[in-house]
Amino acid sequence: MRIIGAFVVLVVLWLLLSGIYTPMIVGLGVASAGLAVLVVRRMDLVDSDPVELALKPLGFPLYLFWLLGEIAKANWAVTRIILAAQMPIRQHLFAVQVTQKTDLGQVIFANSITLTPGTITVETEPERFLVHAVAYTPGTIGELTEMDRRVSAAEAV
């Protein structure tokens, strides 16, 4: 089942990237996708874990839009720090509680923290992330807690 899924994904990727739809080119695409799947199968790299996207179909895109807004704000703040004559840096390494239940949710939260400039996930531990902030204010932890709450809300467990 996973083999067929991987094959279909590879063929679709070929069709999207090549853009030439003559029988020979498409045939070559199908052949190379088949070869790749065969090699992966021989290497025994296809695990039997089910692919679970435990995300809310509507909640997650909404979260992404909210995240884009946060990225814009954070970028502006860091740009002002970089271009300021006296760079107002207040570095701090602190811990943030993690409430996501799935691995995917935690990955999304950690990547979201890193994606907003100004905060970077430095270390992941079971219950908490260590986060480094370049311009630390007392409100920074509050913002990250808000992000944590939103990621947990977009999770469908």
Partner: peptide
């Protein structure tokens, strides 16, 4: 421009996102 490694990480993050 930034003075040390940890702050430079955040500057690289600007290029990566925005």
């Amino acid at each position: 421009r930034l003075p040390d490694f940890w702050s430079r990480l955040h500057a690289a993050s600007v290029t990566d996102s925005a």
